[in-house]
Design a protein around this nucleic acid. Structure first.
Length: 206
DNA sequence: ACATGGATGCTT
DNA sequence: AGCATCCATGTC
């Protein structure tokens, strides 16, 4: 009967648990490609397929907010045990959504850069692919579209209201390139920690 | 092609 | 305390 509800229940069963997020960020970044991000927010449920991610490796990664290990008001969430959400405000307008990984005091994270919307985005007024892409194809776009902000900082990514669901039928190739927007980095600038699903239209455009 | 925007971090 | 810097995005 209600296909959407059924699907959400199915996804609930495939929820990634906390242990999954205790590994290194590059590993998590690759493994969650093709998985589903489920966010329950303002009494709505949003589902998006994760199509583009970046790994940030922590204190030795000079592109990371936790580089050098200095703890600040902004980055302290990164030092939590993996499995919580790290959001930060950027460019005076936007929010970026990350999943903290690895063990406590190893401040790694995965940035979710783009999603393919599957539910919860108003598709009535956005039938065209180009319109839909403007809503979820980009690290600051999808967060804006579903109301991600500081309210998600430090929240669990293994809870009923925010989780990653395993996709057991992955048939795609993964591209592995250098990360975006980190020219200020030197040592880690060219590391291939930016992953995306090849040929997926919702990968943010270069 | 250009304007927007605020937190951050560095300099004073 | 001041300010240059950051660039994804929206709007042109």
């Amino acid at each position: 009967m209600d296909g959407k509800k059924l699907k959400i229940n199915e996804l609930d069963k495939k929820r990634r648990n906390k242990r999954f997020f205790l590994r290194d960020a590059d590993d998590v970044a690759k493994k969650i490609l093709g998985d589903y991000l489920v966010i329950r927010n303002n009494k709505r449920t949003f589902i998006g397929k994760i199509v583009e991610t970046e790994g940030y490796l922590g204190i030795n990664d000079d592109a990371s907010h936790s580089f050098s290990g200095r703890i600040t008001k902004r980055n302290k969430t990164l030092y939590c045990e993996g499995g919580v959400i790290y959001v930060y405000f950027i460019y005076g307008k936007y929010w970026c959504f990350n999943i903290v990984t690895s063990k406590e005091n190893d401040p790694q994270a995965v940035l979710i850069r783009a999603l393919e919307p599957l539910a919860g985005i108003n598709s009535k007024s956005n039938k065209k692919l180009s319109d839909l892409k403007k809503l979820t194809a980009g690290p600051c776009r999808w967060t804006n579209s579903i109301g991600i902000g500081k309210n998600f900082l430090g929240k669990s990514i293994t809870s009923r209201n925010a989780f990653v669901a395993r996709n057991n039928n992955k048939r795609f190739n993964i591209a592995c390139v250098k990360r975006v927007g980190i020219d200020y980095a030197t040592k880690s600038k060219d590391l291939p920690l930016h992953f995306y699903i090849k040929d997926n239209p919702f990968v943010s455009k270069k």
